[in-house]
Nucleic acid binder design. Sequence first.
RNA 1: CGCGGGGUGGAGCAGUCUGGUAGCUCGUCAGGCUCAUAACCUGAAGGUCGCACGUUCAAAUCGUGUCCCCGCAACCA
Length: 502
Amino acid sequence: MKKSKFYVTTPIYYVNDKPHIGHAYTTILADVLTRYHESIGDEVFFLTGLDEHGQKVKQAAEKRNLSCQEHCNDLAPRFINLWEKLEIKYSDFIRTTQERHIKLVQSVLQKVYEKGDIYMDEYEGWYSVAEERFITATEKESGQFRDVKMLKERNWFFKMSKYQRNLIDHINNNPQFIRPESRKNEILGFLRQPLGDLCISRPKERMDWGIEIPFDREYVTYVWFDALLNYVTGVGFEADNDKFNKWWPADIHLIGKDILTTHSVYWSTMLFSLGLPLPKTIFAHGWWLIGETKMSKSLGNVVNPLDMAEQYGVDALRYYLMREMVLGQDSSFTLESFIKRYNSDLANDFGNLLNRVSGLIGKYFDSVVPAVKGKTAAEEDIEKSFNELMPKIRTLILEFKINEAIEETMQLIRKVNKYLESQAPWKVAKENLERAGTILYTATEALRLAAILLLPVMPSKCGRVMEVLSADKTELLWGGLKSGTKLQTHEALFPRIEEEKK
RNA sequence: CGCGGGGUGGAGCAGUCUGGUAGCUCGUCAGGCUCAUAACCUGAAGGUCGCACGUUCAAAUCGUGUCCCCGCAACCA
């Protein structure tokens, strides 16, 4: 069977931001999808990176008396180190100040310009002197901006409107293009209004930290062409045709709901202009709320993923983020729910199950995995549960329903705990050791398979289970656990978090 | 009437497309077990499925109206 390819991206994060739980969520999600697809034999390319141009970077650099590039180089490790800590297996890390990207952006601008899709016009709008940027009418009405005045400026525009019809047709013909569906409807609603053109430049005199427009040296390109093109630079557009043809179009762009318009409208029309295929899916996930409120720097309620990972473990954080967020919706992040999730799912159900079987096998079989002799209906039932789970998980992952896939796997784990309870091998062992062996093999084998299913979410802890069972690289098929294998001694997989402090 | 999504036991969600015993996790209460990380298992209490009207033998599920919450409304990541 021919291997499929899977190309997944996260947004490139703004280098001036401190990584927060939202960045971690998107990136972990991409990583989980990557690991899952690898596990079913797909070839995967996972791209993430940094957006390093723009006004705020320039201001921050000036304040620190550094060049813009030095400032970026100094901040980039915030993300790179965090991803390493969180066990993110990206294929490439793109930074918009890299030569390969600058070259590509300029080439693309030139191409689109020659095609006649870029023109000079006068932009007139509300300009905030304090913020040094144009603001929208809505923003002006919010009254949160000082020194607002009407300003005229000549700028370059991209003929986005030209592709409005194509885009609407594409969305209608490709139900998987924008997901979840509510977001698709939102965009279709938005597209019912005539689309304007997109201002894509800034005069250098006002802002020069950006990629120079190849056909007008007085200007740099502003965010859109600069940032969005990273998705094609990353897989070698115009630099390596084989590579590019292999990976493009992306299978999924993971984004937060805040940048849905940017991706589904701006990016798509850019691709139309370039004559490139559109990504197969743009998936907009929700936001992490802190308790009931939006996370914001000014409120100071930003959750730092590094702290969480250090205090409670990387895998626990990954598990919580993946299990707790419901597809496309906002979720509430609280320490309380984190601890609850951790204790009930990871410590009590999963970790404890390992302890139960390894303890029993230690006591009655000298830590050697026993053989199966004479399956009863109870064993058949466990085996059947697993066999039914497999295709279910596959479907759920391909639908990006990670939380449901996890829950289904946890159901299997709970079922094995029930099975142990009803079969009571610790009693059976006293009169029928062979029967006890069959029970313990069945429970351990189910645990092994559950651990493989959870491996993409919790690479180290599930990897640890595989080590304990000496089952590294065993397959996701019933019976992969070898009787006669000696179990390794181990510590508690997920020690309970005792809630003492307040 | 700008567009879209949602209101299900104390909490968080599933079920709505393809009407027909309202399901899962957590929490609460009672019991069991004792292999295990005071973990695990069983049972119970708790819902007029936002509200009203309608279609139907039958509605959380379809239709209409209404109230409430949230998102989008563009050049802002």
